[in-house]
């Protein structure tokens, strides 16, 4: 386990990140490429957060996009009301200069709101599991979407916008590729947190739940507590990805967080393999790029992609990585990052 290599890795990554930001700042990277990078970041957060519950804890949550929606709406509402001039609320409540500092805070607040919404699944999960819990998650996804559809103050089914103005406001204070910076930072942060959680004896409690819940409970793991933490943690991170997504696109509507979005998350997690963090990251990257590459096919895209996935499942029925990490396949990588 080379401390030296790890340091090199971190410094190298930092330089790369800095270079990316500088290039983006001076418009040397195409805006389209930038947006693809941002989508990759959002999807990494979305997929890895879902892998906590579906990969590590072994439950089958199919309504993850619902929490993304909560985070997206809460943070968008906050930024737009606080920092933009609105016909109804009048002047901006806070000056644009503060938006630079408050933006990440608001994204995290969106995450916390989504984490609290996670209770909708966490509490039923004490008594229910497997397919029954899966149904509850679907129902929760539908409930969140239909509730948003009926809320007129966020535009109902027409959607909600104004987040672009916030970003322009931030850029007006100081020119900087804010969204690129924050998306990548939050993505790294997320993977980092999940890794810390899952490698601790505390966090391994949820892996014990996946493998044998009865044994876990009798061997002193407080399973209800662990489920509560896992569901809230997972949905909270989904909320963060939602907040970032909303500010990248500049527009949200309830339809963008339908079961289809949840399905995308499931695809990324199971394509990776249940319980592989680096797998989830890789499959989030691959999946986003695939979506972009197939864009010219228009509607056929959504015929081809599922077909590809069906084929992948036929040849690798345990997902691309199984429950292995990248470093299990390439042991030399262990020098650069530690996983297990």
């Amino acid at each position: 386990m080379g401390k030296y290599q790890q340091k090199t890795m971190m410094i190298g990554g930092g330089i790369l990140f800095g270079l990316l930001l500088i290039l983006a700042h001076f418009k040397m990277i195409d805006l389209y490429v930038q947006s693809v990078i941002m989508f990759i970041g959002v999807n990494i957060i979305f997929a890895t957060s879902l892998s906590i519950v579906n990969g590590y804890m072994g439950e089958f949550s199919c309504g993850h996009a619902g929490f993304m929606a909560v985070g997206a709406y809460v943070s968008s509402l906050l930024t737009v009301v606080l920092f933009t001039v609105d016909k109804e609320t009048g002047l901006a409540i806070l000056p644009a200069s503060m938006s630079i500092y408050l933006f990440p805070v608001i994204i995290i607040i969106g995450g916390i709101a989504a984490g609290i919404a996670g209770l909708l699944i966490a509490i039923p999960s004490f008594k229910t599991r497997d397919d029954y819990l899966a149904i509850i998650t679907i129902a929760v996804n539908f409930i969140i979407i239909t509730a948003l559809n009926n809320m007129d103050f966020v535009g109902g089914s027409r959607g909600y916008m104004g987040m672009k103005k916030v970003i322009y406001g931030m850029e007006g204070v100081m020119k900087f590729p804010y969204m690129l910076f924050w998306v990548i930072t939050f993505a790294i942060f997320t993977v980092f947190l999940i890794r810390r959680f899952i490698t601790s004896t505390y966090g391994k409690g949820i892996i014990a739940i996946k493998q044998d819940e009865v044994a876990a409970e009798i061997m002193s793991v407080d399973t209800n507590h662990m489920k509560l933490v896992a569901f809230m943690f997972s949905s909270g991170l989904a909320g963060i990805s939602g907040g970032l997504f909303a500010h990248v696109i500049g527009y949200v509507n309830p339809g963008s967080f339908s079961i289809l979005k949840s399905t995308e998350g499931l695809v990324m997690v199971y394509l990776a393999g249940m319980g592989s963090l680096s797998g989830s990251v890789i499959s989030a990257i691959l999946f986003t790029i695939l979506l972009e590459l197939l864009r010219p096919l228009q509607i056929f895209k959504w015929v081809i992609i599922p077909l590809i996935l069906i084929l992948v499942m036929q040849f690798r029925p345990e997902g691309l990585m199984g429950d292995k990490e990248l470093s299990d396949y390439f042991p030399k990588l262990k020098k650069f990052y530690k996983f297990k």
Partner: peptide
Amino acid sequence: GAHRLYVVITALMVGLVLENGNLA
């Protein structure tokens, strides 16, 4: 002998193929 959930995901994918194939 794939994990049960992989079959479920495959079912989801089949559904998408049918929907969008029809749409196409």
